[in-house]
Amino acid sequence: MKPAPFDYIPAASVAEAVAALAELGDGSKVLAGGQSLLPMMNFRLARPDALVDIGGLGELRGVQARERFIEVGALTRHLDLERTGVPGPLGSLLRSAGAQVGHLPIRTRGTFGGSVAHADPASEWCVLAALLDATMTVTSLAGTRTVAAADFFTTIFTTALEPDELLTAVTLPRLDESYRVAVVEFARRAGDFAIVAVMVACSVRNGVIGDARVCLGGVADRPVRSLAAESLLAGQPAGAAAFRAAADAAAAAVSPPADIHGSAGYRRDLVSVLLRRALERMAP
């Protein structure tokens, strides 16, 4: 229950961090908040040769507001987002999702970028990134590139990040005042990763749904948008009939994994129940 030995490289700047990653190659890992990496190292499920500690890079912590986007720094803590003053429906979504990440002592340390880079398919931030078509900003010695969320999450615990690349920020679109949002999860114990997580963001004007976004966590090897549900919601009156149809279609369209936490059928039932609940509860 103690980590294997590793080289420890505290980075004093992003440039120093990416230089270290380039030199060390794929035996190295980035240490941000450490709330996923260190448990895996304590179990020796992960045995990196080296840790590049970016925890001291204060410039990567915090939310920058732009006109149509916000940029969330990779080291922004879960608790920062649970308390964020970002206005409008996007702020509601961030606060609600943030409050459901782990427990308080995890939220004080764990980071947004760390969660996204860790790519647990049931992680709130991965589901939110896929829901909003986030853009990831990634830096290496070769320069900076951006990756769309749809291309970023490749499979369980695996992303498009190369071993020498550092995720520095995630850009999220602001949602205008017509949006209604909700985050609904089910787990057996408080603070556990969700067995199934559902996030919705729907633009509703005069009682009719326009843009409809539905993202599911825990039902595949990565967070997945439910195109079946989205297409059934768009253009429909925001009400019980459309919500039920979308929930049933979303459940029919998923092929969830079975594991010790629940069978595939159980997860499919959860999709139906949780999505209907999310649509009924969505609020500005």
Binding site: Y8, L38, I106, T108, R109
Partner: peptide, 15 residues
């Protein structure tokens, strides 16, 4: 840690 609750098994001493 700086007034906030943390799990001391998930933080390295060097951090």
């Amino acid at each position: 840690l700086d007034g906030e609750p943390v799990r001391a098994c998930l933080i390295l001493g060097v951090q």
